[in-house]
Every structure is written in structure tokens, then in C-alpha cells.
Write a protein that binds this DNA or RNA. Structure first.
Lengths: 212, 212
DNA sequence: CAACATCCATACCGGTTGGTATCTAACCAC
DNA sequence: GTGGTTAGATACCAACCGGTATGGATGTTG
């Protein structure tokens, strides 16, 4: 591209793709609310004030729009809120426990009702579409690895018992986390989420003390 | 009804609703494969050889068909395979652990790919439809209660520590169980399911020994 | 046999879906 | 200025959706 132009007016590109971003965010919201298959392109556009011309200019199909939501919205959020903090922490096990506590304390009815965006899409799309499966899988595997590394570091810091299988434990933590979301979403109860998550915290704490 | 007729030819009623049952099973399969919203009535009928006339004769709407699947297919299966065995066992905690082991050992690729029928429907429909939510909720709560009672009985048998919150633990077991399904469904890997479920068994075992 | 309910096939409907073809305005480099 | 690219509005489409109305078999009952 023309580097001079970019440097001369860096805000242009931001402005240029402003509508793309609007569509992306509206799609993320609609997909979160209805699932991917039931998400209506007409609804997405109604929330942006744009029309199909704009959408199909940026995204050649609904599927590609959905994948963009996965990569650019869902992954980005997790990266900022979980992966980076855990990867850069001095005592990542503490951060993990704090994060569980934080989510337990700040969960809202609205979030519970809609459920975890990643989990929703995963459950719906993984068996149906290999592209979705691949993109969602990458996020879940990254997540698992981040937690596994946190536990491994915890082992060197005597926070986690040496006999713990950190890979399996990380897998279970991610699974159970999503399970807690799911249960709370069904019951539509913040309290259920809190109870459930505190049991998960017990599991993590047990990785560090007497238990089997 | 006419009791004499029923006694005279008890097979008649079975035959009579044979097509209803066919539709119900085909619907369960289609819903398991595609989810409820994406389940196509045309597809369901194609797998039965029947037509819309038959379906709408037995089920006044797609929603009611879906609820019938929940009540008559999904619930029945759980009742037979889990609730009754746990409720009638002498040492229910043993049965619970055996059941986890059994599912871990006998899980198939096909089942993993499609995921847990109950969990799938729950995630999809609970936020969208209060009727589905109510019916699915009842199953989940029954399940939780069955496990809670098993744990309580385990406490009297010194299999579970006295300080364990059996209600919270039961909630977590159901949640984590569904979470394991979900994770394995995404990865489409029986091995992931096994790893994950063995961690859940560790959690249950920890309710009985030294932990926290 | 006649009257009636049950069972189910057929044809059809309005609404919604994702997607496309066309066109216009704005902007860009030359 | 002028030709070409980009952004996006509008109108339209075939396919599919769940659902309904009708009518014809097939018993079931008086």
C-alpha cells in the first residue's frame, strides 16, 4: 500500500472501516443473542442503519462474517482479559484464582441469560461446520495451554502439587468453567453460577494441597 | 377409555401410535443432529416416510413436538440409565463413580460429535423459550437432586466427608459433566472426553478423602 | 348399513432466509 | 478534469420454513 498516505492520515483507515466494525459488533451481539444459524442478517443490519450492500461488500458470506466475529471479537476479548494477564503474571495461579473470584462476583443477570459467547458458538457450530470448529478450537486450545502454563509455573512455585497432571487439569478447568456457564444459563440464576464456580475454585485449590 | 377393549387387544394401542413414535424418534434424531431451531420438519418426515398430515395430527406445532422429545425421549433415557439406578442403589456413590467410569470407557466418536442431547437443547433453547426452559430445567434439577441424595447417603456411609456441601457438589458435578461433553464435542475427541471425565472423577473422589 | 371419528396424504400459503445484480455517489491517482 | 476503484443503497430472487385446509381412506360404533 501507499505508506506515505497512511502516515499522512492514519485516522483515515480507522474511519474507512468504521462501518465494517459497526457490522462486526452488531453481528457479535445478534449471534450472542440468537446463535449463528438463527442470527438474521436483516436484524444485524437494522441495528447498524446500513444495508446489505455494505455487509456483502465487507463480508462475502454469512459464514465468513461469523468467523470474523470469532477471530476479531471473541478471541480479542479473551486475549485481553485472560490470556495476557495469565501469561505475564508473576504468580499466575493467584491470578487464575482471582479471576475466578472476580467473575463470580461481577456476573450479571444479562450475561447469565445469554451465556458464554464462545461456549454458545462452540456447542452450536462445531459439529456442523469444520471452519467454525477450527477457529473455535484454536481459541479453546490456546486457553487450555495458557492455564496449563500457569499451573506448571505454579508447580515451580510450590503452589501446585508436583504430581498434578497440569494438561489434564487445565482441560478440566476450561470444561468445567464452560459447564458452570451452561448450568447458570439454563437456570438463569446468578446464584447458581456463583455456587458452581466456587466449587471449581475448590477443585483448583485442591491441586495445591492434600487431595488425592 | 374402554378398558375391555384395552384388555382384549392390548397390542392395538401400541400399533395405533406406532407412527407417532416413529415421528418422535425421528424428531429426536434430527434435533440431536441440528438443534431444535435448525431441525427441519421436512427432514424429520423424510426419515419416517410419513407426511405433514401425520405429524400435525399428533403434534399441533413444532414446539410441542420438541417438548415431547424432551419429556418422552430425553427424560426417559436419563431416568432409566441414571436416576433409577442411583435412587435404588445401596451404595449410590459407588454407582455414581462406576457410571462415570462406564461412560468414560464406552463413549463413541458418534456420540462425542453430536454431544449430549440434553445439554445441546438446554444451551440452545433455555434463553429463547420459557416452555423449553421449564421442561429442561426440571430434568436438570431432578438430576441434581438424585446426585445430591446419593452424596447425602454417602455421608451416612462415611464415603463422603461430613463437611461437604452436597447440594453445591451435586450442582457442580452436573455442570462439569456437561462441560466435559461440550469440550469433547468441540474437539471431537473421545480421548479429551476421557481425560476430562477422569478429572471429574478425581473431584468426586476428593469429596471422600483429605481435600480442602 | 349408516354415521362418525381417526389417521394421514396432498396441495397450497405467506413469510423469511441468505445471496445477487444493478446502480449511484464519493473518492482516488494521473 | 477524467478514468477507475471503492462504498454502499435498492430491488429482486429462488429456496425453504412452519403451518393450514381439504379430502380421502380406514376403521369403529350404533
Amino acid at each position: 500500500m501507499n505508506q506515505i498516505t497512511l502516515q499522512a492520515d492514519p485516522s483515515r483507515d480507522l474511519h474507512k472501516d468504521q462501518n465494517r466494525e459497526k457490522i462486526l459488533q452488531a453481528a457479535a451481539t445478534e449471534i450472542h443473542r440468537c446463535g449463528f444459524q438463527a442470527a438474521s442478517i436483516a436484524n444485524i443490519l437494522a441495528n447498524t442503519g446500513l444495508t446489505k450492500g455494505a455487509l456483502y461488500h465487507y463480508f462475502p458470506s454469512k459464514q465468513i462474517l461469523g468467523l470474523a466475529v470469532v477471530d476479531e471479537v471473541i478471541y480479542e476479548r479473551l486475549e485481553q482479559k485472560m490470556f495476557t494477564p495469565l501469561n505475564t503474571a508473576d504468580r499466575p495461579v493467584d491470578i487464575l484464582l482471582e479471576y475466578l473470584q472476580f467473575r463470580q462476583d461481577t456476573m450479571t443477570d444479562e450475561s447469565i441469560k445469554l451465556g458464554c459467547p464462545l461456549n454458545n458458538l462452540t456447542q452450536e457450530m462445531s459439529p456442523l461446520d469444520d471452519n467454525f470448529k477450527a477457529h473455535l478450537n484454536q481459541i479453546l486450545q490456546t486457553w487450555q495451554t495458557v492455564i496449563e502454563n500457569a499451573l506448571l509455573k505454579g508447580q515451580t512455585q510450590q503452589q501446585i502439587r508436583a504430581d498434578v497432571d497440569c494438561s489434564a487439569a487445565a482441560l478440566f478447568i476450561v470444561s468445567a468453567w464452560e459447564g458452570c456457564w451452561g448450568m447458570a444459563k439454563n437456570r438463569q440464576s446468578v446464584e447458581v453460577f456463583q455456587t458452581c464456580l466456587s466449587q471449581l475454585r475448590n477443585y483448583v485449590l485442591n491441586l495445591g494441597s492434600g487431595g488425592k
